[in-house]
Amino acid sequence: MNLTLKVWRQNGPTDKGQFKTYEARDISSDASFLEMLDIVNEGLESKGEEPIGFESDCREGICGVCGMVVNGAAHHSTPRATLCQVHMREFKDGDTVTLEPFRSKAFPVLKDLIVDRSAFDRVITAGGYISVRAGSAPDAHVTPIPKVLSDRSMDAAACIGCGACVAACPNAAAMLFTGAKVTHLNLLPQGQPERYKRVQAMVEQLEHEGFGHCSNHQECVRACPKGVPLDVISLMNRDFIGAQFKLRS
């Protein structure tokens, strides 16, 4: 199949950037979306032109590196898939496809479709962990954890930190990402000692990074390739409100 690509090209963080048009020719419908871009890029490289900058690593939907906005949808509109899991059979011959970077003040564009998501690292650094020194852990069976609780925790822990929630959110909020980590750890017995300190610190960092607020549009949940549920946000809200009382008593 043949496609026309409208691609955001931006040379560096300070460059203004603009859309450029490229043609993708003779693409197999079995190719993945990123392989289609590989082909376009190889064509550019062999002509000595700079390829379109985009990121990917594991190409099996778990590392969270890939991601851009394809035809207005973070990771394309395919449900529960990262961009590397999208295949060309979802497109039609002759389609025009628009490729933009994730847009958020907290995710500055580094080049073309590559953004800086280090804000996520800083949110985790603020408190997204359980403090336990290597070697100091008790036996794993000391605290039985009800399966239901453990499963809910896992649902939240499935987050891959790709940033699609931010990209899709009309407010560019990172509430789903942060809520996922808060929920993962705050539901577990091991997470209780730092429960309120954690949520307070993470939310403060979140604000500091310039992410927006949650209006419960649920765009994030639908864009999330891992199906992290919306409830993680309300759990974070509850704990954050709770923290205002608990941390002061």
Binding site: K6, G72, E100, A173, G212
Partner: peptide, 18 residues
């Protein structure tokens, strides 16, 4: 206002998932 500030550059196209 904060929300507008959080996304200074708008998307050319926007797909609504929900």
């Amino acid at each position: 206002l904060r929300s507008w500030g959080a996304r200074p550059v708008a998307y050319r196209s926007k797909y609504w998932f929900a």
